[in-house]
Simulated scan of single mutants.
Amino acid sequence: MTDTGALRSLASMGVGDWTDTENDAIVAAYFSMLSDELSGRPHNKAVQNRVLQETLGRSRGSIEFKHCNISAAAKGFGLPILSGYQPRFNFQMSLAEAISRWLARHSQWDSALGTHPASGVAEPPALFVGVAPTLHNAPPPVELTQMQAVARRFDVAGRDERNRALGRAGEERVLHHERMQLQQSGRQDLARQVRWVAEEDGDGAGYDIASFTPDGRVRLIEVKTTNGWERTPFHISRNELEVAESRREAWCLLRLYDFSRHPRAFELRPPLDTHVSLIATSYQANFH
Rank of each mutant, 00 (worst) to 15 (best):
V218S: 15
R192E: 14
G228E: 05
G78E: 02
H288I: 12
R41A: 13
R269H: 04
R168T: 13
Q193N: 05
G228I: 06
C68D: 13
L10Y: 07
H235F: 11
M1H: 03
A157R: 04
P125Y: 04
D110A: 14
A126G: 06
N23L: 13
V194N: 02
F259I: 03
V156I: 03
L52P: 12
P87T: 10
R179W: 08
S211K: 01
F234V: 06
R8Y: 07
R247E: 09
T19K: 05
T274K: 12
D3R: 07
V150I: 07
V197P: 06
L253R: 02
L95S: 04
L241Q: 02
D36P: 13
S83Y: 13
V156F: 02
L175E: 00
S277D: 09
L10I: 12
S35C: 10
F89V: 13
L241H: 03
L127R: 01
A132W: 02
S59M: 09
R264K: 04
E37P: 10
W251R: 07
I70L: 00
H43G: 12
S12C: 08
F89Y: 15
D155Y: 09
Q193T: 02
C252M: 15
C252A: 11
A244W: 02
V47G: 02
A74T: 10
E200A: 05
R264H: 03
D215A: 11
Q183F: 07
M1D: 01
F212A: 05
P80H: 05
V15G: 15
A138N: 12
T274E: 14
R179I: 08
R231T: 10
S107R: 14
Q181E: 08
R264M: 01
S111W: 01
C252R: 01
G61T: 02
Q48K: 14
S107D: 08
T134W: 15
D36G: 05
N227I: 08
I81Y: 07
R164V: 11
D189C: 06
C252V: 10
E172L: 09
Q184C: 10
L56K: 04
L254F: 10
M180E: 13
A112G: 01
R264G: 01
R261N: 07
A96I: 02
A149G: 14
G114E: 03
V47P: 06
V156A: 03
N23Q: 12
E178R: 06
F259R: 05
A126K: 04
S32K: 15
R247C: 10
R192M: 12
T19G: 01
R231P: 08
